[in-house]
């Protein structure tokens, strides 16, 4: 199995998800911004910003300038994969770079849950 290059899936290193808008950090001098808005780490403001970014996601001419540039790129990156405009990265559960995914040591059960019914069925048997 290959080991994914962490940089290859780090959107902070890429300011665009083609084809889509170019996203710049706050303070970047651009000739004309399609959308310029700072959110100051406010989650609700980020939600509103991304709702306004979404319709621009196919627009390669659009320019977004925001202090949430990394978050915008991550949002666009996920949508690009879901819309088949970008490939799904390879995933290896044993990849040590996936530090947040801790294998739990539980064996998979490759069968559907057992259907239990009737008054004698113990809760949680399945």
């Amino acid at each position: 199995m290959s080991t994914p290059d962490p940089a290859s899936r780090d959107p902070h290193r890429s300011r665009t998800v083609p084809p889509g808008p170019t996203v710049h950090p706050a303070g970047t001098a651009v000739a004309a911004a399609t959308l310029a808005r700072d959110v100051a780490a406010d989650p609700e403001a980020l939600g509103r910003l991304l709702a306004d970014v979404e319709p621009l996601r196919h627009d390669a001419d659009a320019v977004v300038v925001t202090d949430a540039d990394a978050e915008v790129v991550r949002f666009l990156a996920v949508l690009a994969v879901l819309e088949e405009r970008a490939p799904m990265p390879a995933f290896d559960p044993d990849d040590p770079d996936m530090k947040w995914y801790a294998p739990k040591g539980v064996e998979a059960i490759p069968n559907p849950p057992t259907i239990v019914s009737g008054p004698g069925a113990a809760a949680g048997d399945a």
Binding site: R9, D10, R74, F75, V78, L79, M88, P89, Y101
Partner: peptide, 25 residues
């Protein structure tokens, strides 16, 4: 969700943009 973290590299407690993308979808 894990799938979104695989795309962006973000850990579970820092996936708000990823959550919003899932909601968008």
């Amino acid at each position: 969700k894990l799938y979104s973290g695989v795309i962006t590299g973000a850990p579970p407690t820092d996936r708000l943009p990823e959550t919003l993308a899932t909601v968008a979808a």
